[in-house]
Protein backbone atom coordinates (compact mmCIF):
# COMPACT_ATOMS: atom_id res chain seq x y z
CA UNK A 1 0.00 0.00 0.00
CA UNK A 2 1.24 3.46 -0.86
CA UNK A 3 2.34 5.91 1.77
CA UNK A 4 2.93 9.60 1.57
CA UNK A 5 3.96 12.41 3.85
CA UNK A 6 1.34 14.97 4.79
CA UNK A 7 2.02 17.73 7.31
CA UNK A 8 5.15 15.97 8.46
CA UNK A 9 3.51 12.62 9.04
CA UNK A 10 3.75 9.43 6.99
CA UNK A 11 0.27 8.05 6.27
CA UNK A 12 -1.17 5.22 4.19
CA UNK A 13 -3.22 6.27 1.16
CA UNK A 14 -5.03 4.52 -1.68
CA UNK A 15 -4.60 5.23 -5.37
CA UNK A 16 -7.07 8.13 -5.19
CA UNK A 17 -5.29 9.74 -2.29
CA UNK A 18 -7.80 8.81 0.42
CA UNK A 19 -6.28 7.84 3.77
CA UNK A 20 -6.82 4.15 4.37
CA UNK A 21 -6.46 4.31 8.15
CA UNK A 22 -8.59 7.04 9.75
CA UNK A 23 -6.57 6.79 12.95
CA UNK A 24 -3.52 8.22 11.17
CA UNK A 25 -5.42 11.45 10.59
CA UNK A 26 -4.94 14.69 12.49
CA UNK A 27 -6.06 18.28 12.08
CA UNK A 28 -2.82 19.38 10.43
CA UNK A 29 -3.32 16.70 7.80
CA UNK A 30 -6.85 17.99 7.21
CA UNK A 31 -5.57 21.53 6.67
CA UNK A 32 -2.99 20.28 4.20
CA UNK A 33 -5.45 18.05 2.30
CA UNK A 34 -7.98 20.89 2.15
CA UNK A 35 -5.41 23.08 0.43
CA UNK A 36 -4.80 20.31 -2.11
CA UNK A 37 -8.57 20.19 -2.70
CA UNK A 38 -8.68 23.92 -3.35
CA UNK A 39 -9.92 25.08 0.05
CA UNK A 40 -7.32 27.55 1.34
CA UNK A 41 -8.70 27.84 4.86
CA UNK A 42 -10.84 25.62 7.04
CA UNK A 43 -13.39 27.73 8.92
CA UNK A 44 -15.46 26.61 11.94
CA UNK A 45 -18.24 25.74 9.48
CA UNK A 46 -15.87 23.39 7.64
CA UNK A 47 -14.69 21.82 10.90
CA UNK A 48 -18.25 21.19 12.06
CA UNK A 49 -18.83 19.05 8.97
CA UNK A 50 -15.45 17.33 9.13
CA UNK A 51 -16.03 16.42 12.76
CA UNK A 52 -19.52 15.16 12.04
CA UNK A 53 -18.16 12.92 9.26
CA UNK A 54 -15.42 11.54 11.51
CA UNK A 55 -17.92 10.74 14.24
CA UNK A 56 -20.42 9.23 11.83
CA UNK A 57 -17.78 7.12 10.10
CA UNK A 58 -16.54 6.00 13.51
CA UNK A 59 -20.03 4.74 14.28
CA UNK A 60 -20.98 3.26 10.91
CA UNK A 61 -17.59 2.29 9.51
CA UNK A 62 -18.03 4.31 6.33
CA UNK A 63 -17.94 7.89 5.16
CA UNK A 64 -21.41 9.50 5.10
CA UNK A 65 -23.09 10.42 1.82
CA UNK A 66 -24.01 14.00 1.01
CA UNK A 67 -27.64 13.55 1.99
CA UNK A 68 -26.67 11.92 5.25
CA UNK A 69 -24.44 14.87 6.08
CA UNK A 70 -27.15 17.40 5.25
CA UNK A 71 -29.91 15.65 7.18
CA UNK A 72 -27.87 14.48 10.17
CA UNK A 73 -25.51 17.41 10.61
CA UNK A 74 -28.20 19.96 9.77
CA UNK A 75 -26.23 21.65 7.00
CA UNK A 76 -28.12 22.54 3.83
CA UNK A 77 -27.12 21.13 0.46
CA UNK A 78 -26.45 24.66 -0.74
CA UNK A 79 -24.11 25.35 2.14
CA UNK A 80 -22.26 22.07 1.62
CA UNK A 81 -21.63 22.91 -2.03
CA UNK A 82 -20.51 26.40 -1.03
CA UNK A 83 -18.09 25.16 1.63
CA UNK A 84 -16.71 22.24 -0.37
CA UNK A 85 -17.25 23.14 -4.03
CA UNK A 86 -17.38 20.45 -6.71
CA UNK A 87 -18.30 17.29 -4.91
CA UNK A 88 -18.71 18.01 -1.18
CA UNK A 89 -19.11 14.44 0.11
CA UNK A 90 -15.97 13.18 -1.59
CA UNK A 91 -13.97 16.23 -0.59
CA UNK A 92 -15.01 16.14 3.04
CA UNK A 93 -14.29 12.42 3.20
CA UNK A 94 -10.81 12.96 1.83
CA UNK A 95 -10.05 15.89 4.11
CA UNK A 96 -11.45 14.00 7.10
CA UNK A 97 -9.18 11.04 6.42
CA UNK A 98 -12.01 8.68 5.55
CA UNK A 99 -12.65 6.40 2.58
CA UNK A 100 -14.65 7.49 -0.45
CA UNK A 101 -18.38 7.60 0.37
CA UNK A 102 -20.40 4.75 -1.09
CA UNK A 103 -24.09 4.94 -1.93
CA UNK A 104 -25.94 6.93 -4.54
CA UNK A 105 -27.70 9.56 -2.47
Amino acid sequence: MATREIAGKIVHVNEEGFLTDPSEWNRDIAIELAKEEGIPELTPAHWKIIEFCRQDAGATGKAPTLRRISTMAGVSTKELFALFPKGPAKKVAKIAGLGKPEGCV
Binding site: P85, K86, G87, P88, K90, V105
Partner: peptide, 11 residues
Protein backbone atom coordinates in the same frame (compact mmCIF):
# COMPACT_ATOMS: atom_id res chain seq x y z
CA UNK B 1 -32.05 12.45 -10.60
CA UNK B 2 -29.66 9.74 -9.44
CA UNK B 3 -27.08 10.30 -12.17
CA UNK B 4 -27.41 14.07 -11.98
CA UNK B 5 -26.83 13.99 -8.24
CA UNK B 6 -23.84 11.69 -8.68
CA UNK B 7 -22.47 14.05 -11.31
CA UNK B 8 -22.78 17.05 -8.99
CA UNK B 9 -21.09 14.98 -6.29
CA UNK B 10 -18.17 14.50 -8.66
CA UNK B 11 -17.86 18.17 -9.47
Amino acid sequence: LVMGWAALGNG
